[in-house]
Design a protein around this nucleic acid. Structure first.
Length: 421
RNA sequence: GGAGAGAUGGCCGAGCGGCUGAAGGCGCACGCCUGGAAAGCGUGUGUGGGAUAAAACUCACCGAGAGUUCGAAUCUCUCUCUCUCCGCCA
């Protein structure tokens, strides 16, 4: 959420910045309701002041057994007026807030300007896509003969876009999860295992609601949302809190299952593990001081990259352009891993700096030592990494001509074997 | 699921419907004291909005929302959360 005062005082800049996203800021609407709000606010405050003064006077008179009927009469009218104005003010404030909640974040100045994913810029590459003496297979063509992923039975049990992992497949999923958590905690991230059902406030805090309800699974009674990413519960750990300066930066890492409707994705990645309604992910989340967030994004991205490096998986880093970054993000790098079976790079991690956008929604502040008042923290997060897609990358990059899979060195302690099949 | 208790400032803990942004204590900060420390003494110590050059000033906030009243931390209702006991359960 943008700061209404900042928007009021910098309307044109805000408008320009959002235009880079292809978002047309509702200028007239905002200014109109904002003006209305200020007028109502001043009038009610003035009336309240009158009432406070008069009420004190009435109290004094009553104690002195003096007559106060004329004041009582007058205040009855003032109070009616106040409650009428209060109703209007409440309505206008709801309107303002409702509008602000649907406006996306402003891209950071370092974000390349562009329209869609074709304007994203590659920042760097690591590793060489391997040479195969045979035609490399898709991961489902590798996994099904090995009996380690069963899509058919998953469809019977749940439906399309679900998978069932079995034997070494299930073990590999767990190995990746443990490898990632162990690596992240060794880098100073505190391990979290949060609730995966959350309330509406949490979803609003990180920006999924109110705009993206259609992408979420919801339980009606009692109302809960299934998290689409650990970002939601972990960022909301500090909702409505005031942190101490010395608390920052805070680094968290969390494994959770993630649930997504994939409502607009009919026909995309219908086969295989790439796009599922339920998938596992290890997430990195940071709370930092405003002046540090740009550097912290580089460090966070580096931590995610290191996981791919240790797994020996070739990847590239892509800076998303202004038209392609997410709703809440000020700046995003995607990590794309090389998939020989598809002969292309596919997203495996998305690392974002949200600035104070989420912090303002979720009311996460900190107090500087020796300074008056509070400031919003900056929040960041990134996948470190999407486990299902990492498993796909391992299968496809480490496949052998005989149909077996070599297990990457760093996973062997977790797998108890160096080969599947 | 049944029965009961509670929610006040960083923490503990008072609070007759008006003079309570909130006693008292702890903690914290600064100062005095000391060779240095402890103890002791003194002063200060919430958040958000409006106004302002900055203040003064002003409005709101005692779990959330609604109500009664000229006036609510204090009375009424609803909800949320926490705790205790019983039942059930992984």
């Amino acid at each position: 959420m943008l700061d209404s005062r900042f928007v009021r005082e910098n309307v044109q800049d805000v408008r320009e910045a959002l235009k880079k996203r292809g978002y047309e800021f509702p200028l007239q609407e905002f200014l109109a309701i904002d003006e209305k709000r200020m007028v109502l606010l001043r009038e009610t405050e003035e009336l309240r002041n009158r009432r406070n003064v008069a009420s004190e006077e009435i109290g004094r008179k009553k104690r002195e057994k003096a007559d106060a009927t004329s004041e009582l009469e007058e205040m009855r009218i003032v109070s009616d007026r106040i409650s009428a104005l209060d109703d209007q003010l409440k309505a206008v404030e709801d309107e303002t807030k409702g509008l602000l909640l649907t406006i996306p974040n402003m891209p950071h100045e370092s974000v390349p300007v562009g329209k869609d994913e074709t304007d994203n810029t590659e920042v760097r590459r690591w590793g060489e896509p391997g040479k195969f003496a045979f035609e490399p297979l898709n991961h489902w063509d590798i996994a099904e003969p090995l009996g380690i992923i069963d899509f058919e039975r998953a469809a019977k049990i749940a439906g399309a876009r679900f998978a069932l992992m079995k034997g070494p497949g299930a073990r590999l999923e767990r190995a990746l999860m443990n490898f990632m958590l162990d690596s992240n905690t060794a880098k100073g991230y505190t391990e979290i295992f949060p609730p995966i059902l959350v309330n509406r406030e949490s979803m609003t805090g990180t920006g999924q609601l109110p705009k993206f309800e259609a992408e979420l699974f919801r339980i009606a009674d009692p109302e809960f949302y299934l998290i689409p990413t650990a970002e939601v519960p972990v960022t909301n750990i500090h909702r409505d809190e005031i942190l101490k300066e010395s608390d920052l930066p805070l680094y968290y890492t969390a494994y959770t299952p993630c649930f997504r409707r994939e409502a607009g994705a009919h026909g995309r990645d219908t086969r295989g593990l790439i796009r599922q309604h339920q998938f596992n992910k290890v997430e990195l989340v940071k709370f930092v001081k405003p002046e540090d967030s740009i550097d912290e994004l580089e460090k966070l991205t580096g931590n995610a990259e290191e996981l791919l490096q240790r797994l020996g998986l070739p990847y590239r880093v892509v800076a998303l352009c202004s038209g392609d970054i997410g709703f809440s993000s000020a700046k995003t790098y995607d990590l794309e891993v090389w998939l020989p079976g598809q002969n292309k790079y596919r997203e495996i991690s998305s690392c974002s700096n949200f600035g104070d956008f989420q912090a303002r929604r979720a009311n996460i502040r900190f107090k500087r030592d020796g300074k008056k008042g509070t400031e919003f923290v900056h929040t960041l997060n990134g996948s470190g990494l999407a486990i299902g897609r990492t498993l796909v990358a391992v299968l496809e990059n480490y496949q052998q001509q005989d149909g077996s899979i070599i297990i990457p060195e760093v996973l062997r302690p977790y797998m108890g074997t160096d080969r599947i099949g």
